[in-house]
């Protein structure tokens, strides 16, 4: 497979997952600001929407202050934002087009028609409330597309590269959501001891990852830092946990026919394997105190893996 095609497939997977998570997070956060306990400040919610999508800097380049409609529009559809959900949808299609020959007709059509539908969405007077409808479209279509990926493609290198992109990105997005939330809670020092607020914050996290009901079924207890982190980091049966995604990443990297590497220790397979194992054999008690630090390290290693993939196998220019 040409590296250029591989690159397109990998990034198609990543953008599908990224668009979905940013859209859902914005939707859930925005909704939470409406029914928040008193202390839940609207501004904090808006900041958290920007932070999770790593859009804060870009936003303040165009807007002088935080404004509900502006933040949501900027994150979802703004043309001035190259990292809006809408921009990611275009990139999904561009990458799919570049690798069209490797995709099934059904998958291509699903992506293409999704792109056209979303583009027909009026971006002009986009109001913050519309995020509910907009994000739901994104989320549903993301699942449809992933359904076509899993069920209409041969499970060969093409499928594995897309799936690798999806899982690498999913782990990244879950970490970004957790990091944002830990930062929010830290900022909100005064409410630190109010159990209701704490509970609300962690419930929101679970909903941002569509993990609430599965969490309850598993843990059967009120969401708090300890349990939520345990579930989202280490539950190997939950497909959105970091442990689950990283184990997929490891498996795909070793199955894709990349050439053998000379030095085992610096090899991609080695780094991905080591990271996945770490999540298999770590408990929440070991990392809870230094959760932020642990997440940061993990994210750096994920970025390192993505960087190596790009430089070693997917580079074509």
């Amino acid at each position: 497979m040409l590296s250029r095609i591989g690159n397109s497939l990998f990034w198609m997977g990543r953008y599908i997952e990224r668009a979905e998570h940013i859209a859902r997070h914005a939707r859930v956060q925005y909704a939470s600001s409406v029914d928040a306990p008193l202390s839940q400040k609207r501004e904090a919610v808006l900041e958290s929407i920007l932070d999770m999508a790593t859009n804060r800097e870009g936003y303040f380049n165009v807007h002088s202050q935080l404004n509900e409609d502006d933040v949501v529009r900027y994150t979802a559809v703004s043309e001035t934002n190259n990292f809006s959900v809408l921009a990611y949808i275009s990139m999904i299609r561009e990458n799919a087009r570049g690798a069209r020959d490797s995709l099934s007709i059904e998958l291509w059509e699903a992506i293409n028609s999704f792109y056209h539908k979303i583009n027909a969405f009026s971006t002009a007077g986009f109001q913050a409330e519309e995020i509910e409808y907009f994000a739901r479209r994104i989320e549903q279509n993301s699942y449809v597309i992933k359904g076509y990926i899993d069920n209409t493609l041969l499970h060969n290198a093409v499928w594995m590269l897309i799936s690798l992109g999806i899982h690498l990105e999913r782990a990244t997005q879950v970490i970004l959501i957790l990091q944002t939330k830990l930062k929010d809670i830290e900022k909100n020092n005064s409410s630190k001891f109010e159990e209701a607020v704490d509970n609300f914050q962690w419930t929101t996290v679970l909903r941002s990852i569509e993990a609430y009901d599965m969490f309850m079924r598993c843990k059967k207890t009120t969401p708090n830092k300890h349990h939520v982190l345990d579930f989202l980091l280490f539950d190997t049966a939950f497909p959105k946990s970091i442990a689950f995604s990283l184990s997929c990443v490891k498996q795909f990297i070793s199955s894709i026919p990349f050439p053998d590497e000379e030095k085992k220790k610096e090899s991609l397979e080695f780094i991905a394997g080591k990271l996945a194992c770490r999540f298999q054999y770590t408990t929440i008690d070991e990392v809870e105190e230094k959760a932020s630090e642990f997440l940061k390290q993990t994210l750096n290693t994920i970025y390192e893996i993505a960087g190596l993939l790009d430089v070693k196998y997917l580079k074509y220019h």
């Binding site: 040409l2 590296s3 250029r4 591989g6 590269l161 026919p257 990349f258 050439p259 196998y313 074509y316």
Partner: peptide, 20 residues
């Protein structure tokens, strides 16, 4: 292939693939 998928080294033409 497109031009950017190919390169020339030691007077041979190569294609950049995920397998090298």
């Amino acid at each position: 292939v497109e031009g950017r998928d190919l390169y020339v080294d030691k007077n041979f033409v190569y294609m950049k693939t995920i397998s090298g």
